[in-house]
Design a protein around this nucleic acid. Structure first.
Lengths: 144, 144
DNA sequence: ATAAATCGTAACTGACTTAGTTACGATTAG
DNA sequence: CTAATCGTAACTAAGTCAGTTACGATTTAT
């Protein structure tokens, strides 16, 4: 999950700024990784209906809905896919004390995760893309 | 870090409920792991002044301050020790886009981590211990 | 129909992390 | 001096994960 979320945001932002379908190879090259890694992320976004993908010549992916209607929370949930960002402490450990403590800590962290999710829910892909695009531009200016 | 935090809470709670110094072996047995693992956690708590440890015969660890004056935030920070709970996305990746996205996501998550910390700061070891102790008791009742 | 492009996904690898174990020197009480 | 206890290094085994290779499935163009 760790590294898939930024990749997912790259995909969503890039697709938001282009009208044509983009191939996993293009997305991979612009992000700096391999097409298979991209396709693994695309598969999750696809399952969530956030992108729509066509195989074959001239194929590739496009946004499933408008960039203004998709929040970073939806992207996060598509990638996290049931698993948790916050460390999940195993309750399988033995003894009377360890599982109770694990449960206690998990509750504390679940609240924090919910706070994160509602924050992500307040940012759309369109807004994120504008912000990131601006940063990339000024980074490139500085590099000259 | 993942599994060390519940262990740290076990240590703090157990020490809070006893006046005598407890050995790493006792703490390990009651938690269900090995003394070395416990000592690794104790070393961090020690560095933060949350526990005080004596070597030699009759040695062991006691709380460094009163349980009512120590928050779960302090325990967390002693264990996390500069590293982050939230995933830290590497900015070392190449390309113009990836590092910017990593930075963007990190900012989002840093806010969430701060929210978690302030929540942990509102619970003392004493309160946590009362809560957990109650749960352990009722878990044991159910198991009979 | 065939060829070329593209996706989907499985299998493998190498790097990294981490809990657990073993071991041993340092410290301290009696 | 002895026994108990800590501190810590070194090793191991398991798990995770990004990256790569490979190949079948799908689609368009001719």
């Amino acid at each position: 999950m760790n590294s898939q979320y930024p990749i997912a945001l790259h995909i969503m932002g890039f697709l938001a700024s282009r009208d044509e379908a983009l191939t996993s190879e293009t997305l991979a090259k612009t992000y700096g990784t391999s097409p298979v890694v991209l396709r693994r992320v695309l598969a999750k976004l696809n399952r969530a209906g956030l992108v729509s993908t066509q195989r074959g010549v001239g194929g590739g992916s496009v946004l499933g809905r408008s960039a203004a209607s998709i929040t970073l929370r939806e992207v996060y949930e598509a990638i996290a896919d049931g698993s948790r960002l916050m460390p999940l402490f195993p309750k399988t450990v033995d003894g009377p004390v360890a599982p109770v403590l694990a449960g206690y800590v998990n509750e504390l962290f679940a609240d924090a995760e919910e706070a994160l999710l509602s924050q992500l829910g307040s940012v759309t892909v369109e807004e994120m893309d504008r912000d990131v695009r601006g940063r990339v531009r000024s980074a490139l200016r500085c590099a000259e």
